[in-house]
């Protein structure tokens, strides 16, 4: 691997295959590990259903409650900004959609690049703010361990390298693209074994929370 083209081909080839395989295997293991633990049956006469409140909670938790927002605006805003930036760049950038189309057999319309570009900037700014927050907010600082910073780096690198590659700020381009891919591969490989799993498990978590509350007749 002595030059950027070899590097790019490796990252587009072997490395990507390995990464996506680890990602998928890990993902399935993690989900099975969770679900296999089961839920105790509840015999108390329910006050409400589980299904709708569960679904509703999955959706409503996407919005912060007013009280928390007032007390921790930075956490909320930074979180939002980077998530939105990340999701737009990930899901609505045409080259990414082409990758999804190849993987899943279907795609969706994307956004013009300047908008995606702005989203990427938002993502970067949001992530930097989130890091600053993590380093300064006493609660987050106390909670955070090595994994939290690792996860931050794993999230930040694809965004950063993607941005640099798009703007040709790393040359030659095969190197830039290879670094971008490598960062994504690192992310994919470590994804199932870190907090990044929240991307998927949060749906489970919200569901359980909403369903358990729903039984008792409260919307959580």
């Amino acid at each position: 691997m002595n030059d950027s083209m070899d590097f790019l081909l490796w990252t587009r080839g072997t490395a990507f295959d390995v990464a996506i395989a680890i990602f998928i295997i890990g993902l399935i293991i993690r989900l099975f590990e969770i679900v296999s633990l089961g839920r105790e049956r509840t015999l108390a006469e329910p006050k409400g259903s589980e299904f709708l409140p569960g679904v509703k909670t999955i959706l409503t938790r996407t919005l912060p409650d007013g009280g928390t927002f007032k007390r921790q605006p930075l956490t909320v805003i930074a979180g939002y900004v980077f998530h939105v930036g990340l999701l737009i760049t990930l899901l609505l950038f045409i080259p990414h959609i082409e990758l999804f189309r190849e993987t899943f057999g279907f795609g969706w319309p994307g956004l013009p690049n300047p908008i995606v570009d702005a989203a990427a900037v938002l993502g970067v700014v949001g992530l930097l703010a989130a890091l600053w927050n993590r380093l300064t907010n006493p609660v987050m600082k106390m909670l955070s361990g090595g994994e939290d910073y690792l996860v931050w780096v794993l999230t930040f690198l694809p965004l950063l390298t993607g941005y640099l590659a798009y703007h040709r700020m790393i040359n030659p381009y095969p190197l830039a693209m290879g670094l971008h891919l490598l960062s994504i591969e690192l992310l994919l490989i470590l994804f199932p074994f870190t907090k990044l799993m929240h991307t998927f498990t949060l749906f489970l978590a919200r569901w359980y929370n909403g369903a358990m509350s729903g039984r008792r007749g409260v919307q959580s």
Binding site: F16, P95, H96, E98, L99, E102, T103, M177
Partner: peptide, 9 residues
Amino acid sequence: ALSIPVGDI
């Protein structure tokens, strides 16, 4: 497309 990996994804 260039963003599609080399292998059979």
